[in-house]
Simulated scan of single mutants.
Amino acid sequence: MPLFDHLGITVDDLDTAIAQFDPVMRGLGCTRQDADGSVSWYKGEEELILFPAREVGSGPHRTGRVGWQHLAFAVGAPEEVDRLHAIAVQAGWTVVREPKQYPRFNDRYYASFIEDDNGIRLEFMFNPPAESDDAL
């Protein structure tokens, strides 16, 4: 069973958010499904949904305030981090942190951080398991 069934994100302008999210979500291997007043991307049983804000102009979200911090997508290689980061930048996301290693987490952690027009922050990260001493 997945940890999350779905994640809903409220955005100020749904069309603009779709233009930014769609290339990233498709780059992650997700399938898009449009609905009346929302759009979803699926991968297996997990779903990310964008909804238009009920209070237009109430954004953008500010990272660091109570609430949303960021959503991290785990990928299988550092090259995938780089590829997804490039897709996001091409789609208009703002670079928060370029792809790089994060030794403060561990010597294997490689990630990038981006933010959309709504202040929604995503991370693409590669963090393979540490090799166990049993493998030696």
Rank of each mutant, 00 (worst) to 15 (best):
M1N: 15
P2L: 08
L3M: 14
D5W: 14
H6R: 14
G8D: 05
I9S: 05
T10Q: 09
T10L: 02
T10W: 01
V11N: 08
V11E: 06
L14D: 02
D15K: 05
T16M: 09
A17R: 02
A19V: 01
A19K: 01
Q20L: 11
P23R: 01
P23Q: 00
V24Q: 11
M25S: 11
R26W: 06
C30E: 04
R32P: 11
Q33N: 11
D34Y: 08
D34W: 09
D34M: 07
D34T: 10
A35S: 14
D36T: 04
G37N: 10
S38D: 09
S38A: 12
V39Y: 01
V39K: 00
S40E: 08
W41D: 02
Y42N: 02
G44H: 05
E45Q: 00
E46P: 01
E47H: 02
I49H: 12
I49F: 13
I49E: 14
I49Y: 05
L50S: 01
F51E: 06
P52G: 14
A53V: 00
R54M: 06
E55M: 02
V56A: 08
V56T: 12
G57T: 01
S58Y: 05
S58T: 06
G59E: 01
P60E: 10
H61P: 02
H61K: 04
R62C: 11
R62N: 13
G64Q: 06
R65N: 09
G67S: 10
W68S: 00
W68L: 00
A72C: 15
A74M: 15
V75C: 06
A77I: 09
A77S: 10
E79R: 13
E79Q: 14
E79G: 13
E79H: 07
D82V: 12
R83M: 07
H85R: 09
A88V: 09
A88W: 03
A88T: 07
Q90I: 10
A91I: 05
A91L: 07
W93P: 08
W93I: 13
T94F: 12
V95D: 02
V95R: 03
V96F: 10
V96L: 13
R97D: 11
R97L: 01
E98C: 14
E98T: 13
P99G: 07
P99E: 04
P99F: 02
P99N: 04
K100V: 15
K100E: 14
K100D: 15
P103I: 07
P103L: 11
P103Y: 11
F105Y: 15
N106D: 07
N106I: 02
N106V: 05
D107M: 13
R108G: 13
Y109T: 02
Y110K: 05
A111V: 14
A111R: 09
A111P: 12
A111T: 14
S112R: 04
S112Y: 08
E115N: 03
D117P: 07
N118L: 08
N118Y: 11
N118G: 12
G119A: 10
I120E: 00
R121S: 01
R121I: 04
E123Q: 11
F124Y: 00
F126G: 00
F126C: 04
N127W: 06
P128Y: 12
P128M: 11
P129Q: 00
A130V: 15
E131H: 13
E131Q: 08
S132V: 10
D134T: 13
A135T: 12
A135C: 14
